[in-house]
Design a protein around this nucleic acid. Structure first.
Lengths: 158, 158
DNA sequence: TAGAGATAGTTTATATATAAACTATCGTTC
DNA sequence: GAACGATAGTTTATATATAAACTATCTCTA
């Protein structure tokens, strides 16, 4: 559908720049909703699955909450609740760092490992289904454009 | 920066599809943060400004909370709190529909109109600055790619 | 070695978001 | 006209997110 109709605008968008921006914002918002629905099948949220994937990559050493907050680009105060909830579900645990008691090493439990492996398979299938609506050159173009935008944001102090 | 480094991945991304998806997700997340910082200058959030813009377009008739929830693609229960907070700041008000008391017509107050007009000017300048990192053909390509993705999501029941 | 500063994590207050259960109002149908 | 069903908005419980103030721990330096 055309963006103007989707946004229920009375007038066409005046600027191509605004149209491109709203395209991105609207699309990522809808992707978020699709993602929510997908992960809720497994009793997870997208953020929770992301954490499980990150922790899987870091094995038995895990990551500190500070490191996790940098991976997720969220504040450390947010990570507290995220780990609380994952710990409540017995998917991860906090382990005290042996030589520096300020750190929690967050590691997957066996239950967390099993769930991650199971969800990951379905996840990559869904990703392929969605992204294959784009041609290879479109994908390259999107990746390049997104990189330019991120560079702008980083240069402007994010 | 390369996505792999930004995401602090130990291994390169296996699939181009996943890379394209994470490009989008990461970029919109950073855009959200830039947006937060921009609007906080004016004591607003991005969602609040979006509501003010939508209401401006609908003048003295305003929109019901149900209609607003459709514009914003959020649930009506979310809209309750959004309007509560904007009403607390005297930016909008709830007006009972004259012939159907189930409806609230949400309209801008004079204070809300003034703020919207002021913020809008800066907003469009920022949008131009950011999106002009893309060439005209890149913008067209992004708009087209995003439309394809949204079509996929709509077809898959969102 | 005592104190100062840095770092990791937590708490609190607030904003955004959902789903589900609820109230109030309106329309339709019998 | 009373009952039923649909619609609009609210409330509650929960998840994600921030900023700011806090505690605990560690490190460095005077």
């Amino acid at each position: 559908m055309r963006l103007q109709q989707e946004l229920k605008l009375k007038q066409p968008l005046a600027s191509v720049n605004h149209e491109a921006l709203l395209s991105l914002v609207r699309t990522s918002s809808l992707m978020q909703k699709l993602s929510d629905r997908f992960f809720s099948q497994f009793g997870l949220t997208d953020v929770q699955f992301n954490i499980l994937m990150i922790l899987k990559e870091h094995g038995s050493e895990g990551l500190s909450q500070q490191e996790l907050s940098e991976h997720l680009i969220v504040t450390k105060s947010n990570v507290v609740g995220l780990i609380d909830r994952l710990e409540r579900g017995d998917y991860v645990k906090r382990v005290s760092h042996p030589s520096d008691r300020r750190f929690n090493q967050i590691v997957l439990t066996p239950k967390g490992q099993k769930l991650e492996a199971k969800v990951e398979k379905s996840y990559f299938k869904e990703v392929d289904k969605m992204m294959n609506v784009l041609s290879p050159s479109e994908k390259r173009s999107v990746v390049k454009a997104m990189e330019s935008i991120r560079q702008y944001i980083i240069d402007n102090g994010a």
